[in-house]
């Protein structure tokens, strides 16, 4: 594990993490002794064949599931000690998700979709509209603000979904197969969008995927197999580098 040494500004710290489903002889270990630390501002691809445990790990990181052993600290807080309710609150404020299927709510406009998480966070109407418009602009889809998901292409919808994820200013952006439902061209656009976001606002991105294209856009690649981390390495410099925004990266920005 080339990058196991702890970062100065660690966002995620996972030690000896395990997840077991069932009991006794029927028990299945989805994750075994996973050690992982991710710094603020990193862009990580979590890869592996299906059944490797990457979705389980993603669910635990996203506080959708609870580890059965080990520890998980997010931004210095021990997540496994929190109640389900406290976890939900933490998730609401700090973590954003982009899903494989394009989970925009079909009967809301793009703007209303982007507003939604901030509405749930009880943010006042005018400031959430401002934040939503900014996020749409950041993803280059501000012209779609008043359209409904059925009036957008897959790639456009997924970019709106990403805008929705980043608008509240989360610490961590988790993406589960974000290109899975897209054609190759749209997929590239979406990945480009992730990368721009990462470069411009320095949000920490963890993408779960088995799409090798994604790996080309990530800085770091973590591979799982049978519940074990089998590889964790920094990949070569990304294909597209936007020099103008490099200074916006986190304190570890130079570690690429």
């Amino acid at each position: 594990m080339a990058l196991a040494e702890s970062k100065v500004d660690g966002l995620i710290d996972v030690q000896g993490l395990g997840r077991r489903y069932g009991e006794g002889e029927a028990a299945v270990d989805a994750l075994v002794d996973v050690n992982l630390s991710i710094a603020r501002g990193e862009m990580v691809a979590l890869m592996g064949p299906s059944g490797s445990g990457k979705s389980t790990l993603m669910n635990i990181l996203g506080l959708f599931d609870r580890a059965t052993s080990g520890s998980y600290a997010l931004a210095g807080t021990d997540m496994l000690r929190l109640s389900a309710k406290a976890q939900a609150e933490f998730r609401g404020r700090r973590i954003a998700f982009v899903f494989q299927g394009i989970h925009l709510l079909p009967r809301l406009t793009a703007l209303a979709n982007v507003e939604l998480p901030m509405a749930y966070a009880r943010m006042p109407k005018d400031s959430r509209i401002r934040a939503a418009r900014e996020a749409l602009a950041l993803l280059g889809v501000e012209s779609l603000a008043n359209r409904y998901p059925s009036q957008m292409s897959g790639g456009q919808a997924q970019r709106v979904a990403i805008a929705r994820a980043i608008a509240p200013g989360p610490d961590l952006l988790l993406a589960d197969e974000p290109t899975g439902a897209l054609d190759r061209k749209s997929g590239r656009l979406v990945l480009q969008a992730f990368q721009n976001l990462h470069d411009q606002i320095g949000v920490t991105v963890v993408i779960v995927t088995h799409d090798p294209l994604v790996a080309q856009h990530a800085e770091r690649l973590i591979e799982l197999e049978d519940g074990h981390v089998i590889d964790d390495r920094i990949v070569r410099d990304r294909i597209i580098v936007d020099d103008g925004h490099d200074s916006h990266l986190g304190p570890d920005g130079g570690s690429k």
């Binding site: 939900a88 609401g92 404020r93 899903f99 989970h103 709510l105 749930y120 929705r164």
Partner: peptide, 9 residues
């Protein structure tokens, strides 16, 4: 699920 993932309590 989407609503909860977006922070709905």
């Amino acid at each position: 699920g989407v609503r909860k993932a977006l922070g709905a309590r």
